[in-house]
């Protein structure tokens, strides 16, 4: 395995996530796509740290993990609020997301 293969895989993964982000209408589906993209970024961090020798890659990947968890928690809370007011989790319903 070499660096280019890892980078290619992670860019492919990122683009798949992007595709999901653009096509999903369900809010949870969008969150899932964002997870795919974050995972691609993480893969990049780990691969670069493995081939550069500088010890920051894994540290950054750890930070990304923590950030993603926070994002999922807030995102799901938003989805819950959306579902409670509209009885559905489609994102276009959130155009009037005020109270």
């Amino acid at each position: 395995m070499n660096l280019q293969a890892c980078l290619l895989l992670s860019s492919g993964l990122f683009c798949v996530g992007l595709y999901g982000l653009l096509t999903r209408r369900n809010a949870i589906g969008i969150l899932l796509s964002i997870e795919v993209m974050a995972n691609a970024a993480n893969l990049n961090f780990v691969a670069f740290s493995r081939y550069s020798g500088a010890g920051y890659g894994q540290v950054f990947a750890l930070f990304v993990l923590a950030l993603t968890v926070a994002e999922v928690a807030v995102g799901l809370a938003l989805v819950m609020a959306l579902f409670r007011s509209h009885r559905d989790a489609l994102v276009e319903l959130a155009s009037a997301f005020r109270h």
Partner: peptide, 10 residues
């Protein structure tokens, strides 16, 4: 990984 990600979004 790749196949699972495609299934995730599709």
């Amino acid at each position: 990984i790749f196949a699972a990600s495609i299934f995730t979004v599709r």
